[in-house]
């Protein structure tokens, strides 16, 4: 035992290039460095094709990186998996349709020398009533809960979730995160990939934004939210162009547009903009609205694009 506890995840200089016959190679991951401490709940946020799944695959020992070093609790990923330190809920697929829920848990349990108990994980995933049902007859949300039960079997210190709620309806999604909160509260490190900013900010303490195979932002959920989200303040003005120019000079205003008689400003400090509009700028009919989360997310990841032309070819 060393005196310092190793980080849950330690990724250094990760690159993953896929060669395709007759096409340019795809740089799915183009230089990622990331350290995640024990007990953190981290969202990896990014659009489809950003390199989230590729990074998680390497973290789980399911793929070998082109270059870079990845450690999970100081171990190589495959060793960490074999030791039951890390487990995961993967994207759709991966279940045998002709097995029952309980049989699936039993078969995966049989591969571990020690496990948390077949009935125990079925219960924790809320599947007790469905234990005898065939996988083929389970809904998408139920199948996802089954994958979650499988992930709990090794009693992992690190739980990795790749788009865990994809294909779930709102109710199933809410139930899933409720169960997950209990696991995180019990002290597990949780890393999950998502392309919903709402999901990331509702559940994670920290958000890592990935686009074009690189990390474009990495901060506490609160800060990411305020940078990404902000507020929109708008008002009617007699001389909208002049008001727009004045507001545009403020540091916390990220964009200003004029729509007819109305000036629309996007800002991180809505109070200040509103105060100025109502006093010195003599604006009328002031509206303050929360920016749409998804729009903000697009803005956040789009900024990474210009430097990443070469990586835009898909993945």
């Amino acid at each position: 035992m060393s005196s310092t506890t190793p980080a849950a995840v330690e990724i250094r200089g990760l690159h993953q290039v896929f060669q395709r016959r007759g096409h340019d190679p795809v740089r799915a991951v183009d230089g990622i460095d990331l350290t995640i401490g024990a007990g953190e709940v981290v969202a990896v946020l990014g659009p489809n094709g950003a390199g989230k799944t590729t990074t998680l695959d390497v973290l789980l020992g399911l793929a070998t990186p082109t270059s870079g070093d990845v450690r999970v609790y100081g171990l190589a990923p495959r060793q960490a998996v074999a030791a039951g330190r890390v487990s995961a809920v993967l994207q759709s697929g991966g279940l045998l349709r002709d097995l029952t829920v309980r049989e699936t848990v039993r078969v995966i349990a049989s591969t571990f020398p020690h496990h948390a108990g077949v009935d125990a994980v079925i219960e924790r995933a809320g599947l007790s009533a469905l234990a005898g049902r065939k996988v083929a007859k389970c809904s998408g949300g139920e199948q996802q809960r089954l994958r979650f039960a499988l992930a709990l079997l090794p009693d992992p210190d690190l739980l990795v979730l790749d788009e865990p709620t994809a294909g779930m309806d709102v109710t199933a999604r809410r139930e899933f995160w409720a169960v997950m909160r209990a696991e995180a509260a019990a002290g597990r490190t949780v890393v999950f990939a998502t392309h919903y900013l709402t999901e990331a900010s509702d559940f994670a303490d920290r958000i890592v934004v990935v686009a074009g195979g690189r990390i474009v932002a990495d901060d506490t959920t609160e800060r990411i939210r305020s940078t990404a989200v902000g507020r929109t303040v708008s008002a009617l003005a007699d001389d909208p162009a002049a008001v727009a120019e004045t507001l545009g000079r403020l540091d916390h205003v990220t964009s200003v547009t004029v729509e007819g008689d109305r000036v629309v400003a996007h800002t991180r400090d809505s109070d200040d903009v509103a105060r100025r509009l109502l006093t010195t700028l003599s604006g009328r009919d002031v509206l303050v609205t929360s920016a749409d989360l998804e729009e903000a997310f697009v803005a956040l990841t789009e900024t990474a694009r210009p430097t990443d032309r070469a990586t835009e070819t898909g993945a």
């Binding site: 998996v81 759709s92 279940l95 995966i108 591969t111 020398p113 499988l150």
Partner: peptide, 16 residues
């Protein structure tokens, strides 16, 4: 077919 449908990835998360 099982592996093509992702069962191989599920087993990849076990010591097997």
């Amino acid at each position: 077919v099982e592996r093509a449908q992702g069962w191989g990835r599920q087993l990849g998360l076990t010591p097997m």
